[in-house]
Design a binder for these strands. Structure first.
Length: 822
RNA sequence: GCCGCGGUGGCGAAAUGGCAUACGCAUUCGACUCAAAAUCGAACGGGAAACCAUGAGGGUUCGACUCCCUCCCGCGGCACCA
């Protein structure tokens, strides 16, 4: 008989809210637990069924910790700035603020309908001036510490979004948001100096309780490589006349120049056949000889117009042109020609590399194409496979053709060659990171304005803190044109210089929305603080976040940026910790019934509202936790929901039966024992995020209860407390039905008694030659010899042993007896 | 190409090296009902059985879904980073 989910869910949501049951108050005498969901972007589509999957998991942990006596803070808010609202505004002419707040209202309604134990009084909304005032303040904080700066660099430009993008927002050479091809553009933009933290961002990952997958992704993204920076010097002729072959060159006046290359293989230095510069390298135009100039200019121009993908696809044939100039190999003194090629990236390393065709696959291909000689510097060690004839040899080996370094193992030679270079002042050990500084400027409207003013006399002037927030003006034509829409708001744009009071111009770009989300978890500690970004006492008490749950798609975006902010604040003495999220868990994607990602165009989207309406929030929560491994992608199954709903209905009926019977009769001993085992299992499964097996264990307990009958108040109450984090409304309602007036969430998490949980008798499997022949029920504490004797005495075992000789008998306590035969 | 994760009934899935397929869905049969739904009960990997089955093949072990090697397939990440 189904229970009335609508009625009880509304009833308890209202009661909890009115009682302020989940409101968090600082209490230094109690241990805190900060449980956090990645706050949602309030899209017009409303919640996806994936949202409650992650929120339910956090909710379960939060409830359990509260019942274990922790002071729990579980805040909620909205990541409300961003492109979708702005694009919608452009299409429909509705202001982004209007759609955003409208969507937030809908999100709030939906999130409340699930009965999550959020402390709504701490809500933050990133597009609220009371919030972004402090985002701007943090920009100024970074600016003062030299961690926010403006510089000209090749940046990613999306023609469709009409804005620049951070490196992390480019996927496969395409804009993460609109899938448009991204182009490289040379622009002056604002950056945050994330690379200054590269070593710490890498090293501190080790201490975090995060999924290995995410840690690995961050490690790859930071991309540390060790090697050497090597200086190749050359003479540039200032005389326009080409020197003759007869040695007159020495008499022509010349200037010395130097090209620094970064390499991870200094041991291959004797195999260098050329040096390549990126087309954007500043020396290109300086060095090119007049006769090569035309060709080089054309090549540089062509490279500039290529997209990131066109330039970096692995399959592409390498191209390049010669500058007509040489440098000398710093150790051999050999002349090495200088080329430019667009496979060399301007913004990695020094923007220049040395070409060693014998020991690098790319260089090998380049040499084949342009007819360079291939000089071997390393051969395989004795006993190893021979070096390939028609490819580069990239494994370790022994040096040859390398002067005094001949015969060394290459690992050893790396050190010795670097030392030799260093002694001649031509090189040094160097560590390079793949990580680039975070480009935060956006030429778009719906974001926090960058608090900087440009003055003709004073230059770049930060907006004084007391003038914050720099309000985002409402009356703006926000259609994108490639420059920020804020340029078109004169009242915004034209300002007075805070220093000299002359007319000045306000920065018109806004900040990447990832800046907003890089510190929101700090704001939750003191969300209404009017005079500071956060209150130290509150942050010191509540932070860092103990449990953070969200999607894996933020592995190198939000999660990296938030770590950077935390470290920068830590260094300034503003935080007592330097990692924001101690424990992280990712939920898997919930797919459509057809096993593919839900999408409107495929018509396989499940609306959580419909599920709550039809089956109830408790069923929805339980089902999403029961579907499978939390971090795995799993398909939705509309029919499957009925299974957990039946479980709740049966429990409802069973508890009501016991109440009607005044708990007449006792709890069978077997059931009590089973309960304690279930408490043990559910408790540990929750900690390990194995919610599916925790629920299965409760289903088994109910099945046993129905089979055995009985069940006193103690039994029922323990069962309900186990269920409460998963299905809070039903558990609370039955809790009161049983006769309690205080909320179930103010009671203690049930403890299990190891003695009661112990099983009296166990079934032992008896195998002969590894095959099951019979089973045996024996007391748990039975001695090894006794089991062995009993097992061997079994008739089926005897039959199986006929004509065979016993070689060995394996006894595994409480599990099996295996008679090994010859 | 490199790195990581995975492959178990019709389906979602479970199993500290020790009874493979728990729990749930679907299906079939039965009870209740005039009937249906709901509910309750039973069966449910293949095979008549011996036995055979955890992507394929080998290995280690008394014993392998689990550990090791080779390969196939799927998913995710990175990708000309020198």
């Amino acid at each position: 008989m189904p229970y009335d989910h609508k009625n009880i869910e509304q009833k308890w949501q209202k009661a909890w809210e009115e009682a302020g049951l989940f409101r968090a108050e600082m209490d230094p005498t109690r241990k805190k637990f900060y449980a956090l969901d990645m706050f949602p972007y309030p899209s017009g589509d409303g919640l996806h069924v994936g949202h409650p999957e992650s929120y339910t998991a956090t909710d379960i942990l939060a409830h359990k910790r509260r019942m274990e006596g922790f002071n729990v803070m579980r805040p909620v808010g909205f990541d409300a700035f961003g492109l979708p609202a702005e694009n919608y505004a452009i299409k429909k002419g509705i202001h982004p603020r209007e759609t955003t707040y409208h969507n937030i209202e809908n999100f709030r309604r939906q999130m409340r309908s699930f009965g999550f134990c959020y402390d709504w009084s701490r809500e933050v909304i990133t597009c609220d001036p009371a919030y972004y005032r402090w985002t701007q303040w943090l920009f100024l904080f970074l600016y003062k510490r030299g961690l926010a700066f403006r510089r000209t660099a090749p940046v990613n430009w999306c023609d469709s979004c009409q804005t620049v993008l951070a490196n992390e927002q480019v996927e496969d050479g395409k804009c993460e948001r609109c899938k448009n091809m991204v182009r490289q553009k040379e622009l002056k933009q604002w950056f945050f100096g994330v690379t200054q933290f590269a070593d710490r961002l890498l090293a501190d990952l080790d201490g975090l309780d995060w999924p290995e997958k995410i840690k690995t992704m961050q490690r790859h993204w930071i991309g540390r490589s060790e090697g050497a920076e090597i200086a190749f010097r050359g003479q540039q002729l200032t005389d326009t006349e080409t020197p003759a072959d007869d040695g007159l060159a020495t008499e022509v006046s010349s200037r010395e120049f130097e090209i620094a290359v970064f390499t991870t293989r200094p041991d291959t230095l004797f195999g260098v056949q050329w040096v390549v510069l990126a087309p954007e390298h500043p020396l290109v135009m300086e060095l090119v000889t007049p006769d090569r100039r035309k060709e080089v200019v054309a090549y540089v121009e062509a490279a500039r117009h290529k997209s990131e993908l066109e330039r970096t696809g692995t399959e592409l044939e390498k191209t390049g042109v010669s500058l007509g100039v040489c440098v000398k190999n710093p150790l051999t003194g050999e002349d090495v020609p200088i080329w430019i090629a667009d496979y060399v990236l301007a913004n990695y390393g020094t923007g220049a590399v040395m070409g060693v065709p014998a020991h690098d696959e790319r260089d090998y291909a380049f040499a084949k194409k342009y007819g360079f000689p291939i000089k071997t510097a390393i051969v395989p060690p004795v006993g190893a496979l021979a070096a390939p004839v028609d490819a580069a040899y990239t494994e370790s080996g022994i040096l040859m053709n390398s002067g005094e370094f001949n015969g060394l193992m290459n690992e050893d030679a790396m050190v010795k060659i670097t030392d030799a270079l260093e002694a001649k002042n031509r090189g040094r050990r160097q560590v390079q990171y793949h990580l680039r500084d975070w480009l935060i400027s956006r030429q778009r409207y719906w974001g926090a304005p960058i608090p900087i003013i440009y003055c003709e006399h004073c230059g770049e002037v930060p907006v004084p803190e007391e003038d914050l927030p720099v309000l985002l003006p409402d009356d703006v034509d926000f259609r994108p044109t490639g420059e920020s829409p804020l340029v078109r708001s004169e009242s915004f744009h034209k300002v007075e210089c805070p220093r000299c009071h002359e007319p000045a111009r306000r920065e018109s770009d806004t900040m990447d929305t990832f800046v907003d989300s890089s510190w929101y978890f700090l704001r939750y500690a003191s969300p209404h603080q009017g005079d500071r970004a956060f209150d130290s006492h509150a942050v010191n008490y509540w932070c860092p976040v103990d449990l953070y749950v969200g999607g894996a798609e933020h592995a190198v975006l939000h999660l990296l940026y938030a770590r950077f902010f935390t470290k920068a604040l830590f260094d300034a003495g503003m935080l007592p910790f330097d990692e924001p999220f101690l424990k992280l868990r990712n939920q898997g994607l919930i797919l459509g019934e057809n096993g593919v990602k839900m999408s409107k165009s495929l018509g396989n989207v499940v609306n959580p509202d419909d599920v709550v309406e039809r089956h109830g929030a408790d069923t929805m929560r339980l089902y999403e936790m029961f579907m499978g491994e939390f971090s795995d992608a799993k398909p939705w199954d509309t029919k499957g929901i009925i299974g957990v709903r039946r479980f709740l209905d049966r429990l409802w009926a069973q508890v009501h039966d016991r109440v009607h019977a005044n708990f007449d009769g006792e709890t069978p001993e077997e059931l009590t024992s089973h309960l304690h085992r279930t408490i043990r299992k559910v408790s540990s499964d929750i900690e390990e995020f194995k919610f599916n097996t925790a629920i299965a264990a409760m289903m088994i307990l109910l099945n046993e209860w129905q089979r055995l009958g009985g069940g006193d108040r103690v039994f029922v109450e323990a069962f309900l407390r186990l269920l409460a984090p998963f299905a809070p409304h039903l558990a609370e309602d039955l809790w009161q039905t049983v006769g309690n007036s205080r909320s179930i969430f103010l009671t203690e998490w049930p403890a299990y008694d190891e003695a009661l949980a112990a099983v009296k008798n166990v079934e032992i499997v008896v195998q002969v030659g590894g095959k099951v022949r019979d089973r045996l029920t024996v007391p748990t504490e039975i001695g090894e010899e006794d089991v062995k004797a009993q097992a061997l005495a079994l008739e089926k075992v005897q039959q199986a042993l006929v004509g065979k000789e016993i070689a060995q008998v394996i006894v595994v306590k409480g599990r099996l007896v295996n008679v090994v035969v010859k």
